[in-house]
């Protein structure tokens, strides 16, 4: 027994990478992921072919902001719930729970990110050079999509770690997506209208940072020179996000949106009874 233990201890730090390796193989071969790649390829291509310029970037932004959170969180929860029995089998192997949790998260977030980037990238390569002016905007859209994939996959991992009932978990996932995409904006609008007599620029700024989807949207819009349409608020936003401190704060917020759910999920996973 002791001889085995010594050989084991050397390989334990690499366990996460090993789990990721096999999870990747599994997810990368799934048909839904291929469909997801083709979808982004087709949408990006059509938008660039028939629209182009700022309009294409705006349309792509809307698709990215709506669809990526939905697919990441729903595909993620379903995948992780279906892996429950396998998770138990893996936990009966000599691996640390934290390694397994992070391994499963990366095994989910990496292929989803890759599918999006590959789909978008192939379509972009067809049209490269056609519109160099908006290329940087499209790259910001791509970066936002990647961050949203990481964030909403982390939410999926947190939900599955906390809620044992699959149906309830998927319900919460869809509810969270709705809350971030529709409900939150509605409430912010209501709030802004109710307190329209007060200077609300800073409050609006805070509200945007507090929701990852809104934050991604603002970061993209700032690139599109449409901030002028937002009047004084737009000017405040531009000043804020144009500054180094503002960019740092926005980036920090997006990192926290990934890190905090992951940390909470890992803590729950650590103590969970399977």
């Amino acid at each position: 027994m002791n001889t085995l233990n010594t050989t084991m201890s050397t390989s334990l730090p690499r366990a996460t990478a090993k789990i990721v390796k096999y999870e990747l193989r599994d997810v990368l071969r799934s048909r839904s992921l291929l469909a997801y790649t083709l979808f982004f390829l087709a949408v990006t291509d059509v938008l660039l072919r028939f629209g182009g310029g700022a309009r294409a970037a705006l349309s792509l932004m809307n698709v990215v902001l709506l669809l990526i959170p939905l697919v990441s969180i729903v595909f993620g929860t379903i995948y992780l719930y279906n892996a429950r029995e396998f998770t138990e089998l893996l936990l009966a192997q000599p691996v640390h729970r934290r390694q397994l949790f992070i391994g499963q998260y990366l095994g989910l977030a990496l292929p989803l990110s890759a599918a999006f980037v590959v789909g978008l990238g192939i379509a972009l390569s067809f049209h490269i050079g056609e519109d160099p002016e908006h290329l940087s905007t499209l790259l910001v859209v791509a970066a936002s999509g990647l961050l949203l994939t990481c964030i909403f996959s982390a939410f999926a991992a947190l939900i599955v770690a906390r809620i044992d009932d699959k149906v309830k978990g998927i319900g919460v996932a869809i509810g969270l997506w709705l809350a971030c995409t529709v409900v939150y904006d509605g409430l912010v609008m209501l709030g802004l209208m109710a307190f329209a007599d007060y200077p609300l620029e800073r409050a609006a700024l805070g509200a945007m940072i507090a929701n990852p989807i809104d934050l991604a949207r603002v970061l993209i819009l700032m690139r599109l020179d449409v901030s002028a349409l937002m009047g004084y608020t737009g000017a405040v936003f531009e000043k804020f996000f144009g500054s180094a401190g503002g960019t740092a704060l926005a980036s920090l917020a997006l990192v926290l949106w990934t890190g905090v759910p992951l940390l909470l999920g890992a803590r729950r996973f650590q103590r969970k009874d399977f």
């Binding site: 084991m8 390989s11 089998l89």
Partner: peptide, 30 residues
Amino acid sequence: SNVGYMPQIARFPENLTAAELIAMMRDLRG
């Protein structure tokens, strides 16, 4: 590393092969 477990329900990652599954377990156990 000295325990073998056979759960009641055999559900594995759908797109892996049994050979890969065996390789994964070997890998994890070093």
